[in-house]
Computed example of a mutant assay.
Amino acid sequence: MTITSHDVARLAGVSQATVSRALRDDHRVSAATREKVRRAAQALNYVPSEAGRTLSTRSTRRIGVIVTDLTNPFYPHVVAPLHDELQALGYRMMLITERSDEAVAGENLLDQSLDGVVLATATTESRLPAQLDRRGVPYVFLNRDTGQPGDYASVVDNEGGGRLVAGVLAELGHRRIAGIFGSPNTTTGRDRELGFRLALAEAGIGLPDSRVVRGAFEYDTGYEALPRLLAADEPPTAVFCGNDVVAIGVLNAAITAGLRVPDDLTVIGFDDLPMADWEVFRLTTVRHDLRELARQAARLLVRRITGEADPAGERLILPTEFVPRATHARLT
């Protein structure tokens, strides 16, 4: 025998429509009635039909999260709290992984099977946000955005973090400073470099092209960049890396080159991933709250879905702080 919402309604002494609203936690139904309906549903082992709910509400309670770089240790640390926050808000998370935004099959996102989308690895050149806008699918940027007015995004104060590092290096007496930055078509790469350059310039320190490398936010970028920087006529005494993963590549390359960190070379990262604090690295870095970055993205997306977000866009910016550990030193 199949138990239906009509059976729950009879046991609870309410209408079938009230059952549907109560099981969606619709606040037009009193708390007492919602509780009575839940007890009746539990007594009958009633499980609401997701398909039926979708047809009646045009809501799937599903959120797609697009991540194009699962090899980067950064993303598991934001995907897990994102999942938990969405679940607490009554939504299921679907992880969509491709090598690029362009490889994401648009129709899979835009066929009304998702209530909203989190874009975790967007670039400034991605066409996917415009596609979502045209179809009326709510979305938010997580970590990276376009940097344009009207974005809905949960991001870090990347420019401020870059300024922090430049100030520390200047105070430590470093003048031959290098930067290994992310791709300029990402706001994280662009803005961390911008803040770093501006603060160095204010301190009277140049950053010539010969001491700048840009690439993907991955280990190989750091490992392959350091030998090139060391081959210059005046090799750097300090390197600022676009994220912790790049910095770990630099640390290993320094060992290969026979350098002592921080005696011979100061290395500073960005993000403060949990591995940055491992005893094997003890990486000096820039910290921001990874969990809150994800949680506020989830809350912002739900506000967009329910029509409560600012129609002009909302860009939520998390502060940064400098975390001194064992990979930086005063120039002697």
Rank of each mutant, 00 (worst) to 15 (best):
A9K: 00
L301H: 05
T121M: 01
D111M: 13
R282D: 13
I180E: 01
T237N: 07
L44G: 07
E171F: 05
R228Y: 12
I180F: 05
N158P: 08
D310V: 13
D151Q: 01
V250K: 03
D151V: 06
L89M: 14
D244E: 04
R190E: 11
I305G: 04
I205H: 09
S100H: 10
L86P: 06
L164Y: 03
L300V: 10
V261Y: 04
D145G: 11
R299S: 13
V280A: 04
R299D: 05
L164F: 04
Y75L: 04
L194D: 14
I180W: 00
I177K: 07
V212G: 05
L110W: 01
V78F: 10
F322D: 00
G150K: 01
A122W: 02
G64C: 13
R61C: 11
L265N: 06
R21T: 10
V323M: 00
V239F: 06
F281V: 03
P236K: 06
D277Y: 06
Q16C: 12
P76F: 12
G64E: 06
C241Q: 04
S49L: 15
T71I: 15
S15N: 12
V302W: 02
A9Q: 02
V246A: 02
K36N: 13
A166R: 07
L95D: 07
E107K: 12
A225R: 00
G150A: 10
R291Y: 02
S183F: 09
A122K: 01
V239E: 12
E234R: 12
